[in-house]
Amino acid sequence: MMLPTHALAGMVLALPVALAAPEYAGVALLAGLLGGILPDLDLYVAHRKTLHYPVYYSVGGATAVVAGVLAPTPLTVAVAVFLVAAAVHSVSDVFGGGLELRPWEETSERAVYDHFRGRWVAPRRWVGYDGSPADLALSVALAVPLLATQTGLLQLVVVATLVVAVSYVAVRRALPSLVVRLVSVLPTDVHPHLPERYVASRTGQSIRLEER
């Protein structure tokens, strides 16, 4: 799923905290947003492996939730929401498409790397691929409760996130061709520093996703 969907999902996860304990609303929603974004910061460095930890984030999040309930403070609440949002992001990527330049072609059987078991988890493709119409529909659905309950800056953040989502979906199918053209004009000594799927797609090789 695309980054805006994960960001909105992280904020939705924080909504129960924000509504039940308004004094922690700001820190919880911010932590949910950041936790939903964090795993995708590995986009160009072994994507869905370097910062995606479906098992470890889940264990850490469960432990942090207990701590947050027993000893609620801005810090414990933020850590709990942050880790749960990162866990949901890492797990939910399994329900999208594979890790490939054109995921709608369904050539990859790698969705998220499971560090605990030391293997890649295959994509379920229930939400198509990142930037698919179904992905956008999910973003809109997640935005509804946020827009209904939040005001001011947080509401603007939600609207801006939706604008990014719509823009990304509009150009998603064209992005692979743009990437291939960009790679073709870059010096070849830069290629080793690019995601393997970019270079492989440009040269016509079979796609071998990065394992490092």
Rank of each mutant, 00 (worst) to 15 (best):
G60H: 13
A87Q: 01
L51Q: 07
Y53A: 14
S90P: 07
V45S: 10
G96S: 15
S58A: 15
A62S: 11
H52E: 06
R102S: 14
Y57C: 07
F116Y: 14
S92D: 02
F82Y: 12
A87R: 01
L83D: 03
D93A: 01
A111H: 01
V59L: 15
V65K: 03
A67C: 14
A64V: 02
V65P: 12
V94M: 00
V94Y: 00
Y56L: 13
P74S: 10
D93G: 00
A111M: 05
V66F: 11
H47T: 00
H52R: 05
V79S: 10
H89M: 04
A71C: 12
G98R: 07
A67P: 00
E106L: 09
K49F: 03
H89P: 02
H115K: 12
H52N: 11
G97H: 05
Y44L: 14
T50Q: 09
D114M: 10
A87T: 03
A111Y: 00
D93I: 03
V59H: 08
V45E: 08
R110N: 09
A80R: 09
R48Q: 05
P72Y: 04
P72V: 07
S90H: 06
Y57H: 10
A85W: 05
V79H: 09
Y56A: 13
P74E: 12
V91H: 00
V88F: 13
L99P: 01
H115D: 11
L43G: 06
H47G: 00
A78E: 06
E105H: 14
G97C: 01
T76K: 07
T107I: 13
R102A: 14
S92T: 13
H47A: 03
V84H: 06
R102W: 01
